[in-house]
Amino acid sequence: MTTVMLVDDSATMLMSLKSILTKAGYTVETAGHGKEAMDKLSKGVKPNLIISDVNMPQMDGITFVREARKAPGMRFTPMLMLTTESEQTKRNEAKTAGATGWLVKPVAPDQLLGVIKQVVPGA
């Protein structure tokens, strides 16, 4: 069972991604910002993939990825950033922080599922 953790401060975005993933048979965990997500990770939630927004209150996505890499069992977990067309520099920052790749908003269902297959072996 592949679990995907979604981190985004937009409830709309969470809802849309969650419905795509749930329909495709993934288990989904959501968090409204990096802090909440870190909390879940520290409480033993162990996703096989994390998809996080970049711009969020409390803890931005890049800081979150950097922190999440240090969480138990998250050393080798694929992490993707949700970015917009204009956020080229953010992508590089994210990679330095430990992100595996990125998605460009708005995310089409096929694209999302394709990328998951690409970065999570056996997903």
Binding site: S10, T12, L82, P106
Partner: peptide
């Protein structure tokens, strides 16, 4: 504004 744009794209 950013969040707005992101969500509106849906």
């Amino acid at each position: 504004a950013h969040t707005f744009k992101g969500s509106s794209g849906l």
